[in-house]
Simulated scan of single mutants.
Amino acid sequence: MTNIKLLEQFRSFYFRNYPDDMETQIKYFSIFGGLGQDVDTSKPLAQLIEELILQNFDTLNEKIEQLTLNEPNNKRLLNALAVGDRRIFSAFKRAGLNNGNGGGTLNFLQEKGIVQIEYSREAQSKKISKHRISHKVLFTYPFIRFWFYFIYPHIKEIKEKNYENLFKSIEDKKNSYTSLVFEELSEVLLNYNLRDAQIISSGSYWDANIEIDILTLTDKMEIYVGECKWTNHRINKSELHKLEEKCQKLEIVPFQMILFSKRGFSKELKNMQGKNLALYSSDDFEALLKNASHTELIESFI
């Protein structure tokens, strides 16, 4: 279902900072969403990361340690969830935890409101393979995910004021990092546009062989499937073919397929838009700001 908390944070971030366009909004929100500070989105990201995070590192690190009780297992699992595939069992393995202490750690992080579980819908599929189904985890606040994706792995260097490897990592992985927030917001946008329908189930879909960014089912048994691409080039017809192949393997016939793109679409894809195919680029996310109050500033994780 629509992630109301993320939508509220997205709106709050916009009305607090008024970025020039939606691409900038999404890019900066994916890092600073939840930080609860004014963000001058006219400045380069690297400059803002240094000003808002690195220059305030001691204060922010203390707040993170309070949030996690400075417990190593909590921080290792958050790092594993941030940089991995979000699947619970693989995150336990990456963090060096077993099902026992890993489960206890995950429960604590849920209770603190740091993460939330995205439950697998594989059992709802016609094709159920014989393997252990693993649920996934989403971060409640983009900034905490940024911290454990980029800051935590370089924390010793940062304490020594050595930022070279940190900024290299951010530059190399920034699109990959932003992709998840873009995917979450894309689901929010799709569900917003389906607000007159009764949504039964919505979220990403995964099993042992197939992953689909968004799969939404309505009470009329209409299936909407979507793929999200946060890349610096326009999406072409090949991405539509890949999504069609996934639907065939899953043995579903979608009512509509939706592609979400950072930078738009090829002319060929645009000509194919219609009842069966919808295309959304960054500018379309402005719809999420409609009917929103610009007086509510609620995005801080503190």
Rank of each mutant, 00 (worst) to 15 (best):
N3A: 00
L6K: 03
L7D: 06
M22V: 08
M22Y: 13
Q25I: 08
F29H: 09
I31W: 05
F32K: 07
G33N: 05
G34L: 03
G34I: 03
D40S: 09
T41P: 07
E50W: 11
I53W: 01
I53N: 05
N56C: 00
T59W: 08
K63C: 01
I64S: 02
A80P: 04
L81Q: 02
A82I: 15
G84M: 10
G84A: 10
R87Q: 13
F89V: 04
F89Y: 14
S90A: 09
F92K: 00
R94S: 10
A95D: 04
N99H: 12
N99M: 11
L106D: 06
E111P: 03
K112I: 04
G113Q: 03
Q116F: 09
R121I: 11
A123C: 05
S125N: 15
I128G: 04
S129A: 11
R132S: 03
I133V: 14
S134L: 03
H135R: 09
V137C: 01
Y141I: 07
P142N: 12
F150V: 01
H154K: 09
I155D: 05
E157H: 05
E157L: 08
E157F: 02
K159E: 10
K159V: 00
Y163V: 07
Y163R: 01
F167R: 05
S169E: 12
S169Y: 04
D172P: 04
K174I: 15
N175Q: 15
N175H: 14
S176P: 01
S176R: 14
L180Q: 11
V181C: 14
L185R: 09
S186H: 02
V188T: 11
L190K: 06
N191A: 06
D196W: 05
Q198D: 15
S201N: 13
G203H: 04
Y205I: 10
D207F: 07
I210S: 05
I212P: 02
I212S: 04
D213S: 12
T218F: 00
K220T: 15
E227F: 05
T231W: 08
N232G: 10
H233Q: 15
R234A: 10
K237T: 07
E239C: 09
E244A: 04
E244D: 10
Q248C: 01
K249W: 05
Q256T: 00
Q256R: 12
Q256A: 13
L259K: 04
S261F: 05
S261C: 05
R263K: 15
F265E: 02
K267Y: 03
E268M: 08
N271Y: 01
N271M: 03
M272A: 01
Q273D: 06
L277T: 03
L288T: 01
S293C: 14
F301M: 10
I302N: 13
